[in-house]
Design a protein around this nucleic acid. Structure first.
Lengths: 246, 246
DNA sequence: TGTACATCAGTGAACGCGCGTTCACTGATGTAC
DNA sequence: TGTACATCAGTGAACGCGCGTTCACTGATGTAC
């Protein structure tokens, strides 16, 4: 329990290996705490080290602070996402079946790597700015790879890169949004889960249908964009009691 | 500064009004802190009351804890969303222009109510479970209203309610996702903002194009859904050094 | 192979600090007569 | 209108607690000869 003894048959860089182990333990501890419903941003060093089974001060041998640990998590999460995509690349089925198969793979990955995905979907819009941007960066990589895949499908090969990215972004944000919902299903509700999966499949079918129509339009360039803007951020909630003003 | 004096010309339920004011101040203080980059989940009672300019213990006259304040925020945010939608209902323009106009309204609302929107997009997947579910509930209301609007458009009036909800959900999640991105743009980057708005418009056009094709399909019922599932949640990060095993 | 020294991952005590929560209070506002 | 009492939103002191961070340490692992 207290201190690891040597001689489990392992040789060589024992110290470095052990250090790496502890590092991974810390990262897994953080993920596990996030999985238990904590917000990563609210995690403390003592909480994480307690979960990992080391003394608080040991944390500083590996990370300067929790943000740095977060960035490390984003990196491994990116690896996970890209590995998933690599394995999902296959087959020449009709569109809807490709989608269904890909979603199957996706959901399977979701379940296998729930903690990583929960971390990503949570912190994507919730963490510190630096963490948010790091995650968005990983997601952009993901979109780019997806775009390359889409491009190889005949129907879309006359779309501009910009349009393809627009579609890729739509697909990925739809999948992230669904991930968040699916991960919130309590275990043992396969019916709800299947419903959600079917909805996700339908949504992606709609998107790809739309994209194929879009790609055939003659006027698919940029339009003039006027955005109605306004200031006034001070107080967001007003005591707006309606009526009764004499 | 210290204690509010009476006699600003106001009569009647002065005490109740003041209490309501303090309550709103607390809610706005929380929003404002979220706007400054804090995660709502990580906000403390002392932090909020400090921002609101009251003593920590005053908090308990209004909320049992921060979660309860969060729920109150969700409620007002829901009002904001619904008010927005009500005002956006109008006109009989061609589809893309309706979308462009609606998005204009939307982005304008985003800017006017940034703090509320930031709170919603952040806590939608990041907060406590109870807060997440409350927010999802508000979003569902929103989807339902949107569905009613979509139904009134001729092209979609032979779609099943289920399909309409699927599309509505897709539209809303796309808009939420974009909100998160748009709110993260640093002020004074109108070009980036316009790009994002155009992308959002394009994405929604793709969705509605897809939906109209979908609605014309003869076989738009539910399919058999098999989801590849798997267990193994224990440790999410492995020390996967590739190769070198003798 | 054996010895002597260097390295450094993890320890444990200690610190000052801000937290959430309790409690008795105060004094302006509300109400009854 | 005036008086006497009740209500209760906001106060301020006090509490015990866990936090992040510092520091000197220990003892297994690594290295040089």
């Amino acid at each position: 329990m207290s201190r690891p003894k040597a001689g489990h048959g392992e040789e060589g860089q024992v110290r470095a290996q052990r250090k790496e182990m502890t590092r991974l333990n810390l990262m897994n501890a953080a993920l596990s705490l996030v999985g238990q419903g904590n917000s990563f941003t609210a995690l403390g060093i003592r909480e994480i080290t307690r979960e990992a089974g080391v003394v608080p001060t040991a944390f500083y041998r590996h990370f300067r602070n929790t943000d740095e640990l977060g960035l490390a998590l984003v990196e491994t999460a990116g690896l996970t996402l890209r590995r998933m995509l690599r394995e999902a690349r296959q087959s020449g089925l009709p569109t809807e079946d490709i989608i269904r198969l890909s979603i199957s793979t996706y959901v399977s990955y979701l379940r296998q790597n729930q903690l990583v995905f929960r971390f990503i979907t949570t912190e994507r819009s919730g963490g510190s700015r630096i963490l948010r941007l790091a995650i968005r960066n990983e997601i952009n990589h993901f979109v780019n790879e997806l775009v390359m895949d889409i491009r190889s499908v005949a129907v879309y090969n006359n779309m501009s890169t910009q349009s393809l990215q627009m579609v890729g972004d739509l697909v990925v944000s739809t999948m992230m949004s669904a991930a968040s919902d699916i991960l919130d299903i309590l275990p043992g509700q396969p019916l709800v889960e299947n419903e959600m999966i079917e909805r996700l499949v339908s949504q992606l079918v709609v998107v790809f249908l739309g994209a194929s129509v879009w790609s055939e339009r003659p006027d698919k360039g940029a339009k003039s964009g006027k955005s109605a803007d306004a200031e006034g951020t001070e107080s967001q909630i007003q005591n707006d009691r309606q009526g009764d003003t004499a």
